[in-house]
Amino acid sequence: MQQYRIAILGSGNIGTDLLVKAMRSPHLTCVAFIGRGYTSPGMNKARALGITCSDQSIDYIPEHADEIDLVFDATSAKDHALHAPILKALGKQVIDLTPAKVGPMCVPAVNLDSSLGSSNLNMVTCGGQASIPVAFAIGQTHPEVDYLEVVSSIASKSAGPATRINLDEYIETTEKGLQAFSGAKRTKAILNLNPAVPCIDMQTTIFANVKNPDIEALKRVLDPIVEKIKTYVPGYKILVGPILDGDRIVVMVKVRGRGDYLPEYAGNLDIINCAAIAMAEQFAMNGGN
């Protein structure tokens, strides 16, 4: 079978970590690592790995359209809004790691199959990838979810200037994702940055107020979902719960990254990349195009 060929747009931390993950995958071949210049550490890494690099940004793709099956966009929401129509016109499968929300939201453990039909998939947010599977399980087992809340703590070091500037967008996108997948009437996302050294692993707590909480039923649905997540995010772990604390359901999740390009503590960045790779592999196994 011909290898499924992927290109990575964006040579920052996310793009570089994706590259390392893609190279490990038996289903994917990275044919281009594309940025805006050659001087970043990501470009150095890609070159050292022997990958074709380009500084032509989106312009590279139309010129090499025949060589690429799928494009990961790890640039920014603003840039992806410009890239999306170009990639669509070329008929490329796109996995969007920015919060641009051009395509439908995708969380592989929850909606892998239904996502296969969309040419542009949005990977929500890191907090979303960690919490939505739990929120989904709560929604599946409780017909009335009044309120769902997700609190994530990440290492201060794992949040660069772009993350900090876009904190409000993170909250908004995560809340939308939670609502869409759980059916909760109201949702809330909270993010804490903790500067402790050694860096803390990403930790996410899901709280829910539901009518007639049924922890046993929730466990039955949640357990296989968690097993599914673990197939693509090995560092995903339920730390506490599900428990009933007063009248709220509590589930605490820890995500330890694989430590590919990004360090282990950056589970928040690892999980979104792992999810993106899992989707790309699925496209590859479905025979690509």
């Binding site: 550490p41 290492a155 070091k157 050294v197 050694p198 860096c199 990004l262 360090p263 282990e264 950056a266």
Partner: peptide, 14 residues
């Protein structure tokens, strides 16, 4: 420059 960029990804740099 290279050193500080690499150090950004060190998890237990004291």
């Amino acid at each position: 420059r290279a050193l500080v960029q690499a150090a950004e990804r060190a998890s237990d740099l004291r």
